[in-house]
């Protein structure tokens, strides 16, 4: 495959993949902080149940998750119909549906690092801030979060990488609508099915290189190898 052919390749699956991953990571970050905070400090009785729900995507086949999303969001069913009637939102075979499903699917990858980061902070730091008259919000933003930067970075990167690598869930509820739900992993599958190994190789190579670079960056940062470059 020549250079010209490469440039004329359809880039939309790649762009869509990273758009999905960025949006999912951003929204999940906002959602995961309060959730991880609650899981780290609550002594509620329902905590084990919530912890289980958060961890489910780790063990459940993505197709199972995708199947239930499909059922729940389908406009033929009560919930999906209600969404459609009241908000005009259709989550099946749409990009917003992919974002929502990705958020749930990557939940443990964002929540677990943040939760264990928070649990690892000595409780005296939090108590000291309270005793200085600081609110919970100030304590969270000025004391707790700055002290778990490596955990935050790990959560962000794992979520991003995990969303880039998503396949089963998207196949189930997104289908393969070009420019809307056809992400790179789906495109690769279809190119292979059509025996277009060249295009499959193109998409695969890009995903491989980018995910390798991202993960390498995390290990460099968290391992302190880059400390010498900024202070």
């Amino acid at each position: 495959m020549g250079i010209l052919q490469r440039i004329s390749m359809d880039w939309s699956p790649i762009i869509l993949t990273f758009k999905l991953a960025l949006l999912t990571t951003f929204l999940l970050f906002l959602l995961a902080i309060p959730l991880a905070y609650w899981l780290a400090y609550s002594r509620s009785r329902i905590k084990p149940v919530i912890e289980t729900v958060v961890s489910m995507p780790l063990v459940l086949p993505p197709t199972v998750l995708g199947f239930y999303f499909l059922i729940a969001f389908s406009p033929n069913n009560t919930f999906g119909n209600w969404l459609d009637q009241w908000f005009g939102v259709r989550l099946v075979f749409s990009f917003s549906g992919l974002v929502l499903a990705s958020i749930i699917y990557s939940l443990p990858f964002m929540v677990h690092p943040i939760q264990s980061g928070l649990t690892g902070i000595p409780s005296s730091l939090k108590e000291a801030a309270y005793l200085m008259g600081k609110s919970r919000w100030t304590t969270l933003t000025k004391v707790l979060l700055p002290n778990i930067k490596p955990s935050l970075l790990t959560g962000i990167v794992l979520t991003f990488a995990h969303t880039v690598g998503e396949f089963g869930v998207i196949l189930m509820i997104g289908g393969s609508i070009p420019g809307k739900t056809k992400v790179a992993s789906i495109a690769i599958y279809e190119e292979v099915e059509a025996l277009n190994y060249g295009s499959a190789n193109f998409y695969s190579g890009i995903l491989l290189a980018i995910t390798f670079a991202i993960l390498l960056l995390v290990y460099l940062v968290n391992g302190g190898y880059l400390k010498q470059f900024w202070k």
Partner: peptide, 13 residues
Amino acid sequence: RQRQLGFVFQDYA
């Protein structure tokens, strides 16, 4: 935070 006291922790915090 309403008690306005100084506290030195065993681990200094």
